[in-house]
Amino acid sequence: MAAAEEDNTVKEPLDLIRLSLDERIYVKLRGDRELRGKLHAYDQHLNMVLGDVEESVTLVEIDDETYEEIVRVDKRTIPFLFVRGDGVILVSPPLRTS
């Protein structure tokens, strides 16, 4: 059993995350937040530790005079970040060449 677990097949959704260990992934979070970073650890709740993280926060502001919607994206980088799983919406691994 143990030897067969390290294979490249996707039998359950979390296998997709397992195959992304040590790869850069994209994470979409609640609150219009997105992360791009290298996946170093995760658990079944989708708690994660990411490295070399770029966070993008999308903010929509309303112009006081014209009432136009202004979309702003704030970016920052963080060397190592623990992300609590309950905020995760979607995880996308890099394109696999399999």
Partner: peptide, 10 residues
């Protein structure tokens, strides 16, 4: 939401 980790702690 997040915990920013010390570089020497990873």
């Amino acid at each position: 939401r997040y915990i920013q980790l010390p570089v020497d702690g990873v």
